[in-house]
Structures are given as structure tokens and as C-alpha cells.
């Protein structure tokens, strides 16, 4: 019996050890991918500059510009929901003047960057993982290597830069539109005057909040791009691997974004 328990405990420790090593290896691979992409961006070379720029522009158009309509709708609705809840509940507690703080804390600090990241993962992250997965199966990635075209410089770096820039801009855009949505409902339903609404937000908003939202946008963009490129290129020989890797990319992106959010946010309140 004791032997059984020992076996069980040992197995559990081994399992935890294996998972920890796998997790570490995975994060190290993502870090390597990211570092190589940054080096490719920073190291001056004329080789493939025009072609890489074309891929980058396409990525920004797809991830950033094409995502504007859906981001606008979600941000507006979120702003309306939050201000409706805050505007109806806070006055009962005698804290009606905290509507601005609630918007700043929930939207600008937290939900803006997170929901934008989720939108980008769902739209572009999965698209990148699927595209690179299909490219791996049809041996387009190998063909690029054989032509002396760097996968990191031509495939990964422009997608990563495009996604980071798009994520940053979309996050800031999301915040502005969500605040606007909040104002619309504040004006229409709660009859909070425009100046009072703006004043409560500007009072609550600090440079740290804006910096925080920007840092989160940049970090989420880097993480999502690295994860989606990694999983796309992890596809080996079968099309059935493509949706499997895409799902992993999506789930891991969500988890890593939340993890980064905790790492960035919690120290601020300690």
C-alpha cells in the first residue's frame, strides 16, 4: 500500500516535472523566435527589404485596418454596458461620481487591452497559424529556405511587427471608442452632462494608465504573434495538424495574454 502511494506520488512529481520542462522549453522556443525576429528587424540589410515590407503592409492591413469595424462594435457595446452598470449601481451607494474611475480602471487599464487581444487572436492569430500551417504542409516553407529566403526575416518578422503595431493601435482605438460608447449612454439614459463625464474621466486617468495600456498592447501583440507563428510552423506533414495547431495557438495565446496581464498589473497594486 505504502509502495503504491509512493509510486503514485513519484508519478505525480514526474508528471509535474515533465510539464514544467515542456513549459520551459515552449517559452524558450517562443523567446528565441521573438528574439530572432527583433534581430532581423534591427540588423541593417538590404536583402529582401522590399518584399518583407510588402508582407508587413499586408499584415497591418489585415490585422489592424480590417479589424476596425468589429473592434468598433465591441468597444461601443462594452462602453455602453459598463457605463450603464456603473451609472445605475454607483449612485445607490452614493458613489455616482466614480463613473469616470470605473471606465478608466475597467476599460483603459484592463478590458481594452485584453478584449483587443482576444479579437486579434480570433481574427488574425488563427489566420497566421492556419496560413503558416498550410505553407508547411505544401512545402512552401521548405521552398523558401531552398531559395535562400530567411523564414525569420520574410515570414515571421513582418507578421510579428504587423501584429504588434496593429495591436497597439487597436488597443488605443478600443479605449477611445469604449469611452465614447460610455458617453453616449451616459448622455442618453443617465443624463450625465458631457463636461461632467469628460471631467470624471480626465480626473481618474493618469499617464500610468495610458502607459499601462500601451505596454499591454505591445506585450500581447508580441506574445500572440510569436505563439501563432510557432504553432503554424510546428505543422509537419498533414493538413489535419493545421486545425490542431491553430486551436493550441489560440488557447495558449489567451492564457499567455492573461498571464502577462497579471504580471504587468499586480505589481502596480502591491
Amino acid at each position: 500500500m505504502l509502495l503504491h502511494e509512493k509510486d503514485g506520488l513519484q508519478r505525480m512529481i514526474e508528471w509535474v516535472g515533465r510539464k514544467a520542462i515542456a513549459g520551459y522549453t515552449y517559452l524558450a522556443a517562443l523567446a528565441t523566435l521573438f528574439t530572432q525576429a527583433v534581430l532581423d528587424l534591427l540588423l541593417p540589410t538590404r536583402q529582401g527589404r522590399g518584399e518583407t515590407l510588402r508582407v508587413l503592409v499586408r499584415q497591418i492591413l489585415f490585422t489592424g485596418v480590417d479589424a476596425l469595424p468589429v473592434t468598433t462594435v465591441i468597444a461601443l457595446l462594452l462602453g455602453i454596458i459598463i457605463v450603464t452598470q456603473a451609472g445605475t449601481q454607483l449612485p445607490r451607494l452614493g458613489a455616482g461620481g466614480l463613473v469616470g474611475s470605473i471606465i478608466v480602471v475597467t476599460v483603459i487599464r484592463e478590458l481594452g487591452p485584453l478584449i483587443t487581444a482576444f479579437i486579434v487572436v480570433g481574427r488574425s492569430g488563427t489566420a497566421i497559424a492556419t496560413e503558416l500551417g498550410n505553407m508547411s504542409v505544401t512545402r512552401e516553407v521548405v521552398a523558401l529556405r531552398l531559395m535562400g529566403i530567411s523564414i525569420s526575416r520574410f515570414v515571421i518578422m513582418p507578421r510579428m511587427v504587423g501584429m504588434v503595431l496593429s495591436m497597439l493601435c487597436l488597443t488605443l482605438y478600443f479605449d477611445v471608442v469604449a469611452v465614447l460608447g460610455g458617453y453616449l449612454i451616459a448622455d442618453a439614459q443617465l443624463t450625465i452632462p458631457f463636461y461632467a463625464f469628460v471631467e470624471s474621466i480626465t480626473k481618474a486617468l493618469s499617464t500610468t494608465d495610458v502607459l499601462m495600456t500601451a505596454i499591454k498592447g505591445l506585450s500581447f501583440g508580441s506574445a500572440v504573434a510569436a505563439i501563432c507563428c510557432y504553432h503554424g510552423l510546428a505543422v509537419r506533414s498533414s493538413f489535419t495538424e493545421v486545425p490542431q495547431q491553430t486551436t493550441r495557438a489560440m488557447i495558449n495565446s489567451f492564457v499567455l495574454c492573461l498571464l502577462i496581464d497579471v504580471v504587468v498589473t499586480v505589481p502596480l497594486y502591491l
Binding site: L144, G148, I149
Partner: peptide
């Protein structure tokens, strides 16, 4: 052969020239 599926045949053949002979 691994022709890039998002490029026309012309651009597939042009790609190595554009990349290496900018």
C-alpha cells in the same frame, strides 16, 4: 514544388529576384 499559393505564377518566379537582387 512549393509554389507560394498566395502569389501568381509570375510573382512566384519573380520572388527570388526581388529578394536577392533588390
Amino acid at each position: 514544388p512549393g509554389l507560394l499559393s498566395n502569389m501568381t505564377l509570375f510573382h512566384n518566379v519573380l520572388l527570388p529576384l526581388r529578394y536577392h537582387h533588390g
